[in-house]
Protein backbone atom coordinates (compact mmCIF):
# COMPACT_ATOMS: atom_id res chain seq x y z
CA UNK A 1 0.00 0.00 0.00
CA UNK A 2 1.51 3.29 -1.03
CA UNK A 3 -0.70 5.40 1.19
CA UNK A 4 -0.60 5.00 4.91
CA UNK A 5 -4.06 4.68 6.34
CA UNK A 6 -4.58 6.74 9.45
CA UNK A 7 -7.94 5.40 10.39
CA UNK A 8 -9.17 1.92 9.80
CA UNK A 9 -12.63 0.77 10.72
CA UNK A 10 -13.50 -2.81 10.03
CA UNK A 11 -16.87 -4.49 10.27
CA UNK A 12 -18.34 -1.99 12.66
CA UNK A 13 -21.78 -2.84 13.93
CA UNK A 14 -23.86 -1.18 16.53
CA UNK A 15 -27.33 -2.14 17.66
CA UNK A 16 -29.80 -0.13 19.67
CA UNK A 17 -32.02 -2.82 21.03
CA UNK A 18 -32.74 -5.08 18.10
CA UNK A 19 -32.40 -2.28 15.57
CA UNK A 20 -29.08 -2.05 13.77
CA UNK A 21 -28.00 1.59 13.67
CA UNK A 22 -24.75 0.72 11.93
CA UNK A 23 -24.41 -2.61 10.21
CA UNK A 24 -21.08 -4.07 9.17
CA UNK A 25 -19.42 -0.89 7.98
CA UNK A 26 -15.75 -0.98 6.96
CA UNK A 27 -13.62 1.81 5.57
CA UNK A 28 -10.22 3.44 5.81
CA UNK A 29 -9.08 7.03 5.76
CA UNK A 30 -5.68 7.81 4.30
CA UNK A 31 -3.29 10.53 5.17
CA UNK A 32 -4.32 13.94 3.89
CA UNK A 33 -7.72 12.80 2.69
CA UNK A 34 -11.05 14.50 3.16
CA UNK A 35 -13.78 11.91 3.40
CA UNK A 36 -17.38 12.95 3.20
CA UNK A 37 -19.91 10.93 5.11
CA UNK A 38 -23.18 11.39 3.36
CA UNK A 39 -26.58 10.12 4.25
CA UNK A 40 -30.10 11.10 5.19
CA UNK A 41 -30.92 11.85 8.80
CA UNK A 42 -30.95 8.76 10.95
CA UNK A 43 -28.78 6.77 8.55
CA UNK A 44 -26.12 6.10 11.16
CA UNK A 45 -23.64 8.87 10.43
CA UNK A 46 -23.48 10.24 13.93
CA UNK A 47 -23.46 6.79 15.47
CA UNK A 48 -20.45 5.87 13.34
CA UNK A 49 -18.69 9.06 14.32
CA UNK A 50 -19.40 8.53 17.99
CA UNK A 51 -17.88 5.06 17.69
CA UNK A 52 -14.79 6.42 15.93
CA UNK A 53 -14.19 8.87 18.74
CA UNK A 54 -14.70 6.47 21.61
CA UNK A 55 -17.98 7.96 22.77
CA UNK A 56 -19.84 4.78 21.99
CA UNK A 57 -18.56 1.23 22.06
CA UNK A 58 -19.25 -0.82 18.92
CA UNK A 59 -20.96 -4.18 19.34
CA UNK A 60 -18.67 -5.73 16.72
CA UNK A 61 -15.68 -4.65 14.76
CA UNK A 62 -12.41 -2.93 15.22
CA UNK A 63 -11.17 0.65 14.97
CA UNK A 64 -7.50 1.46 14.54
CA UNK A 65 -6.29 5.03 14.63
CA UNK A 66 -2.73 5.66 13.54
CA UNK A 67 -2.16 1.95 14.07
CA UNK A 68 -3.46 2.00 17.66
CA UNK A 69 -6.53 0.00 18.55
CA UNK A 70 -9.20 2.30 19.97
CA UNK A 71 -10.83 -0.39 22.06
CA UNK A 72 -7.64 -1.82 23.56
CA UNK A 73 -5.75 1.44 24.12
CA UNK A 74 -8.44 4.11 24.17
CA UNK A 75 -6.31 6.80 25.77
CA UNK A 76 -3.43 6.58 23.32
CA UNK A 77 -5.76 6.28 20.34
CA UNK A 78 -7.95 9.19 21.38
CA UNK A 79 -4.90 11.47 21.49
CA UNK A 80 -4.84 11.25 17.67
CA UNK A 81 -8.45 12.32 17.19
CA UNK A 82 -10.13 15.68 17.19
CA UNK A 83 -13.90 15.52 17.39
CA UNK A 84 -16.59 18.10 16.89
CA UNK A 85 -19.99 16.62 17.71
CA UNK A 86 -23.20 17.88 16.17
CA UNK A 87 -23.76 20.27 19.07
CA UNK A 88 -20.39 21.90 19.75
CA UNK A 89 -19.36 21.00 23.31
CA UNK A 90 -18.65 24.44 24.73
CA UNK A 91 -18.65 25.83 28.23
CA UNK A 92 -20.56 29.02 27.67
CA UNK A 93 -19.33 30.71 30.83
CA UNK A 94 -15.70 30.64 29.71
CA UNK A 95 -13.96 32.97 27.30
CA UNK A 96 -12.65 31.53 24.04
CA UNK A 97 -9.11 31.65 25.31
CA UNK A 98 -9.88 30.05 28.66
CA UNK A 99 -11.83 27.30 26.98
CA UNK A 100 -9.06 26.52 24.51
CA UNK A 101 -6.49 26.53 27.28
CA UNK A 102 -8.59 24.01 29.14
CA UNK A 103 -8.87 21.86 26.00
CA UNK A 104 -5.11 22.03 25.50
CA UNK A 105 -4.54 20.82 29.05
CA UNK A 106 -7.25 18.21 28.66
CA UNK A 107 -5.39 16.82 25.67
CA UNK A 108 -2.16 16.71 27.63
CA UNK A 109 -0.23 19.35 25.73
CA UNK A 110 3.00 20.31 27.52
CA UNK A 111 3.01 23.50 29.49
CA UNK A 112 5.65 25.03 27.21
CA UNK A 113 3.75 24.37 24.00
CA UNK A 114 0.32 25.12 25.40
CA UNK A 115 0.31 28.83 24.72
CA UNK A 116 1.58 28.28 21.17
CA UNK A 117 -1.05 25.62 20.56
CA UNK A 118 -3.83 27.92 21.79
CA UNK A 119 -2.54 30.85 19.74
CA UNK A 120 -2.21 28.73 16.61
CA UNK A 121 -5.73 27.35 16.97
CA UNK A 122 -7.12 30.85 17.54
CA UNK A 123 -5.32 32.16 14.50
CA UNK A 124 -6.22 29.25 12.21
CA UNK A 125 -9.87 29.48 13.08
CA UNK A 126 -9.95 33.26 12.80
CA UNK A 127 -10.92 33.79 16.42
CA UNK A 128 -8.42 36.57 17.13
CA UNK A 129 -11.05 39.25 17.56
CA UNK A 130 -13.26 37.29 19.92
CA UNK A 131 -10.56 35.53 21.95
CA UNK A 132 -11.42 37.41 25.10
CA UNK A 133 -15.19 37.20 24.78
CA UNK A 134 -17.47 34.75 26.52
CA UNK A 135 -18.41 31.81 24.34
CA UNK A 136 -22.07 32.16 25.31
CA UNK A 137 -22.19 35.63 23.76
CA UNK A 138 -20.77 34.61 20.38
CA UNK A 139 -22.80 34.01 17.24
CA UNK A 140 -23.44 30.45 16.18
CA UNK A 141 -20.84 30.68 13.42
CA UNK A 142 -18.17 31.71 15.87
CA UNK A 143 -19.24 29.06 18.33
CA UNK A 144 -18.83 26.50 15.57
CA UNK A 145 -15.34 27.86 14.93
CA UNK A 146 -14.49 27.50 18.59
CA UNK A 147 -15.72 23.92 18.32
CA UNK A 148 -13.40 23.34 15.36
CA UNK A 149 -10.50 25.06 17.16
CA UNK A 150 -11.07 22.66 20.05
CA UNK A 151 -10.87 19.71 17.66
CA UNK A 152 -7.55 20.74 16.06
CA UNK A 153 -5.76 22.19 19.08
CA UNK A 154 -3.64 19.10 19.73
CA UNK A 155 -2.83 18.63 15.99
CA UNK A 156 -4.58 15.27 15.77
CA UNK A 157 -4.00 12.96 12.83
CA UNK A 158 -7.71 12.72 12.09
CA UNK A 159 -10.29 15.44 12.59
CA UNK A 160 -13.87 14.24 12.77
CA UNK A 161 -16.57 16.84 12.17
CA UNK A 162 -20.23 15.96 12.59
CA UNK A 163 -22.39 18.23 10.42
CA UNK A 164 -20.15 21.26 10.90
CA UNK A 165 -22.29 23.60 8.82
CA UNK A 166 -25.76 22.74 10.08
CA UNK A 167 -27.78 25.65 11.37
CA UNK A 168 -25.52 28.38 10.00
CA UNK A 169 -26.37 31.19 7.60
CA UNK A 170 -24.96 31.07 4.05
CA UNK A 171 -22.05 33.41 4.78
CA UNK A 172 -21.07 31.47 7.85
CA UNK A 173 -21.35 28.24 5.89
CA UNK A 174 -18.91 29.59 3.32
CA UNK A 175 -16.47 30.64 6.00
CA UNK A 176 -16.64 27.30 7.79
CA UNK A 177 -16.10 25.48 4.50
CA UNK A 178 -13.04 27.59 3.80
CA UNK A 179 -11.80 26.76 7.28
CA UNK A 180 -12.33 23.04 6.71
CA UNK A 181 -10.40 23.28 3.46
CA UNK A 182 -7.51 24.92 5.32
CA UNK A 183 -7.58 22.23 7.98
CA UNK A 184 -7.50 19.55 5.31
CA UNK A 185 -4.05 20.72 4.29
CA UNK A 186 -2.63 19.42 7.53
CA UNK A 187 -5.00 16.79 8.83
CA UNK A 188 -7.13 14.01 7.50
CA UNK A 189 -10.74 15.02 7.85
CA UNK A 190 -13.92 13.01 8.15
CA UNK A 191 -16.94 15.14 7.61
CA UNK A 192 -20.56 14.19 7.86
CA UNK A 193 -23.26 16.11 6.14
CA UNK A 194 -26.54 15.77 4.33
CA UNK A 195 -25.80 18.75 2.11
CA UNK A 196 -24.66 17.33 -1.21
CA UNK A 197 -22.89 20.32 -2.80
CA UNK A 198 -20.77 20.53 0.33
CA UNK A 199 -19.37 17.11 -0.45
CA UNK A 200 -18.65 18.15 -4.03
CA UNK A 201 -16.83 21.20 -2.76
CA UNK A 202 -14.78 19.72 0.03
CA UNK A 203 -14.24 16.02 -0.25
CA UNK A 204 -11.80 13.76 -2.05
CA UNK A 205 -13.81 10.70 -1.31
CA UNK A 206 -17.45 10.07 -0.60
CA UNK A 207 -19.07 7.46 1.55
CA UNK A 208 -22.79 7.20 1.34
CA UNK A 209 -24.47 5.52 4.25
CA UNK A 210 -28.08 4.49 4.27
CA UNK A 211 -29.92 2.55 6.94
CA UNK A 212 -26.70 1.72 8.68
CA UNK A 213 -24.99 0.30 5.60
CA UNK A 214 -22.30 1.70 3.39
CA UNK A 215 -23.81 1.86 -0.10
CA UNK A 216 -21.10 3.82 -1.87
CA UNK A 217 -17.46 4.34 -1.06
CA UNK A 218 -15.32 5.81 -3.79
CA UNK A 219 -13.70 8.93 -5.09
CA UNK A 220 -15.72 11.94 -6.14
CA UNK A 221 -14.75 11.30 -9.80
CA UNK A 222 -16.43 7.92 -9.72
CA UNK A 223 -19.49 9.55 -8.32
CA UNK A 224 -19.46 12.10 -11.14
CA UNK A 225 -19.28 9.26 -13.67
CA UNK A 226 -22.37 7.87 -12.08
CA UNK A 227 -23.88 11.27 -12.57
CA UNK A 228 -23.44 11.23 -16.37
CA UNK A 229 -26.75 9.72 -17.13
CA UNK A 230 -27.37 7.96 -20.42
CA UNK A 231 -30.41 9.90 -21.57
CA UNK A 232 -31.13 12.50 -24.24
CA UNK A 233 -34.06 14.83 -24.43
CA UNK A 234 -35.24 15.47 -27.99
CA UNK A 235 -38.05 17.65 -29.30
CA UNK A 236 -39.43 17.99 -32.79
CA UNK A 237 -41.61 20.58 -34.51
CA UNK A 238 -43.94 17.85 -35.71
CA UNK A 239 -45.37 14.76 -34.06
CA UNK A 240 -43.23 11.68 -34.46
CA UNK A 241 -43.93 8.09 -33.62
CA UNK A 242 -41.74 6.79 -30.81
CA UNK A 243 -41.38 3.53 -32.71
CA UNK A 244 -39.17 5.23 -35.29
CA UNK A 245 -36.91 6.60 -32.60
CA UNK A 246 -36.53 3.29 -30.88
CA UNK A 247 -35.14 1.79 -34.12
CA UNK A 248 -32.03 3.94 -33.86
CA UNK A 249 -29.03 1.80 -32.91
CA UNK A 250 -28.17 2.12 -29.27
CA UNK A 251 -31.55 3.41 -28.15
CA UNK A 252 -32.91 1.10 -25.52
CA UNK A 253 -36.09 2.71 -24.53
CA UNK A 254 -38.14 5.79 -25.43
CA UNK A 255 -40.27 7.79 -23.00
CA UNK A 256 -42.85 10.02 -24.59
CA UNK A 257 -42.93 13.25 -22.60
CA UNK A 258 -45.50 14.74 -25.02
CA UNK A 259 -46.38 14.09 -28.65
CA UNK A 260 -43.31 15.98 -29.80
CA UNK A 261 -40.94 15.58 -26.85
CA UNK A 262 -39.17 12.34 -25.98
CA UNK A 263 -36.55 11.03 -23.63
CA UNK A 264 -34.18 8.50 -25.18
CA UNK A 265 -32.43 6.02 -22.92
CA UNK A 266 -29.34 4.55 -24.47
CA UNK A 267 -26.67 2.08 -23.52
CA UNK A 268 -23.46 3.61 -22.25
CA UNK A 269 -20.78 3.74 -24.97
CA UNK A 270 -23.47 3.77 -27.69
CA UNK A 271 -24.44 7.39 -27.92
CA UNK A 272 -27.03 7.71 -30.71
CA UNK A 273 -26.63 11.46 -31.17
CA UNK A 274 -24.79 11.28 -34.50
CA UNK A 275 -27.24 8.81 -35.95
CA UNK A 276 -30.16 10.81 -34.71
CA UNK A 277 -28.84 13.95 -36.36
CA UNK A 278 -28.25 12.19 -39.70
CA UNK A 279 -31.77 10.77 -39.68
CA UNK A 280 -33.25 14.07 -38.65
CA UNK A 281 -31.62 15.84 -41.57
CA UNK A 282 -32.23 13.20 -44.19
CA UNK A 283 -35.84 12.49 -43.17
CA UNK A 284 -36.69 16.08 -42.27
CA UNK A 285 -37.86 15.43 -38.66
CA UNK A 286 -37.54 19.15 -37.83
CA UNK A 287 -35.47 18.62 -34.71
CA UNK A 288 -35.72 21.62 -32.39
CA UNK A 289 -34.11 20.42 -29.17
CA UNK A 290 -31.32 17.97 -28.45
CA UNK A 291 -30.14 17.95 -24.89
CA UNK A 292 -28.01 15.42 -23.00
CA UNK A 293 -29.49 15.03 -19.58
CA UNK A 294 -27.23 15.32 -16.56
CA UNK A 295 -28.15 13.96 -13.21
CA UNK A 296 -27.40 16.04 -10.20
CA UNK A 297 -25.62 14.60 -7.23
CA UNK A 298 -29.03 14.58 -5.62
CA UNK A 299 -30.38 12.14 -8.19
CA UNK A 300 -27.42 9.84 -7.82
CA UNK A 301 -27.75 10.00 -4.09
CA UNK A 302 -31.43 9.19 -4.23
CA UNK A 303 -30.73 6.41 -6.71
CA UNK A 304 -28.13 4.81 -4.48
CA UNK A 305 -30.36 5.03 -1.45
CA UNK A 306 -33.44 3.81 -3.28
CA UNK A 307 -31.54 0.90 -4.76
CA UNK A 308 -30.74 -0.04 -1.23
CA UNK A 309 -34.41 0.15 -0.30
CA UNK A 310 -35.36 -2.18 -3.12
CA UNK A 311 -32.66 -4.66 -2.15
CA UNK A 312 -33.97 -4.68 1.40
Amino acid sequence: MSQFSLLEASQLSRYFGSQAAVDNVSFTVNKGEVVGFLGPNGAGKSTTMRMLTGNLAPDHGQIRINGIDLLDNPRQAKAHIGYLPETPPLYKELTVKEFLQFCARLNGIDKKQRQTAVDTAIERCGLGQVAKRLIGNLSKGYQQRVGIAQAIIHSPAVVILDEPTSGLDPIQIREIRQLIRDIANEHSVILSTHILPEVQMLCDRVQIISQGQLVFNDSLDKLSQNMLASTLIVEFAQALSPAILSQLTGVEHVDALSTTRYRLHYLPEQNPTQQLLQHAVSENWQLTTLMPEQHSLEDVFMKLIQKEDIDV
Partner: peptide, 14 residues
Protein backbone atom coordinates in the same frame (compact mmCIF):
# COMPACT_ATOMS: atom_id res chain seq x y z
CA UNK B 1 -27.86 18.66 29.03
CA UNK B 2 -25.37 21.04 27.40
CA UNK B 3 -23.94 18.10 25.45
CA UNK B 4 -20.42 18.84 26.60
CA UNK B 5 -19.76 15.32 27.82
CA UNK B 6 -18.35 14.20 24.42
CA UNK B 7 -15.56 16.74 24.89
CA UNK B 8 -14.38 14.89 27.96
CA UNK B 9 -15.17 11.45 26.59
CA UNK B 10 -13.15 11.95 23.41
CA UNK B 11 -10.19 13.45 25.25
CA UNK B 12 -7.38 11.08 26.13
CA UNK B 13 -8.73 10.46 29.63
CA UNK B 14 -10.17 7.36 31.24
Amino acid sequence: RNETLPLLASAPLS
